[in-house]
Design a binder for these strands. Structure first.
Length: 256
DNA sequence: ATGGTGGCACCGCCA
């Protein structure tokens, strides 16, 4: 079972990259964030032609999430309960007995702003949701763009970035609290050294070449899946394509 | 250097 995540930064602009990646990698599940497309304009056929089904929830210009799957999806939820009118940042489905939650955590802008508070609240709401509706005894994958680097080894300049949105102790504590519910970081399970990133800011000149990145995309899994975890890797190919993305694909393989 | 680029929708916002 191969499960992947990718912040697309527009699914329509990045469609060719995504389609080629699906053809090459043949994952069972791909979670997309920042699709930036309303549901009526989602390029559903491009996925169907490859033998994939797709569920999505978008909005105009911003946010938007999708789950692409080779297998039937059930138990589909496009928002947290009671948050149906909120920004399109959550979608979940059960696939082959695994409950897959795809999250696009708010970026947060800067500490002290309303958006930063919204980010912390969003993470807390997700934690509460899991506590109320799920048990860590189940096979659950929580994946997506969390916009939080957890440790010093997860950013290129920990001293310089500390305290900024994406590398702030309050966010790190909140995400760790959420992980404490019952998740392990699958990439970190297989790679103990730092310097591996999933995101490079467009605004830093040659940031990718100089490896000035952040590891803010994750695949988290509960214990029953961690026991079956075979590998997890970062695929930087979208960075070298014609329309490079600011994020990479992250893919995990489970022996089930 | 308090900048920079990129996507979408509009004449700025968000990342």
């Amino acid at each position: 079972m191969k499960i992947a995540t990718f912040n697309a930064n527009s699914v329509r602009t990045r469609l060719e990259i995504i389609v080629n990646w699906l053809k090459t990698e043949q994952p069972d599940v791909l979670c997309l964030q920042e699709t930036k497309v309303q549901d009526k304009d989602f390029p559903e056929d491009s996925f169907r032609e490859l033998g994939y089904q797709v569920v999505f929830r978008g909005q105009k210009a911003y946010n938007g999430v999708a789950v692409v799957s080779r297998h039937p999806l059930s138990d589909i939820r496009t928002a947290l309960p009671g948050k149906e009118d909120d920004q399109a940042r959550f979608i979940s489905a059960t696939i082959m007995g695994i409950h897959v939650i795809n999250a696009y955590v708010p970026q947060g802008v800067a500490p002290g702003t309303d958006k930063f508070q919204y980010k912390l609240q969003w993470l807390e709401d997700l934690h509460s949701y899991l506590q109320t509706y799920y048990s860590p005894d189940r096979r659950i994958v929580l994946t997506g763009d969390f916009n939080v680097a957890l440790e010093d080894m997860d950013v290129h300049d920990p001293a310089g970035l500390r305290g900024q949105a994406g590398f702030h102790p309050d966010e790190q504590a909140m995400l760790k609290k959420l992980m404490g519910w019952g998740f392990s970081d699958v990439f970190r399970l297989h790679h103990k050294e730092g310097g591996s990133y999933t995101f490079w800011d467009y605004r830093i000149p040659n940031g990718f070449k100089r490896n000035m990145g952040w590891r803010i995309d994750y695949i988290f899994a509960t214990r029953p899946l961690i026991e079956k975890s075979i590998d997890c890797r970062i695929d930087t190919r979208p960075r070298t394509a014609e329309k490079p993305s600011d994020h990479t694909f992250l893919v995990a393989e489970f022996g089930i």
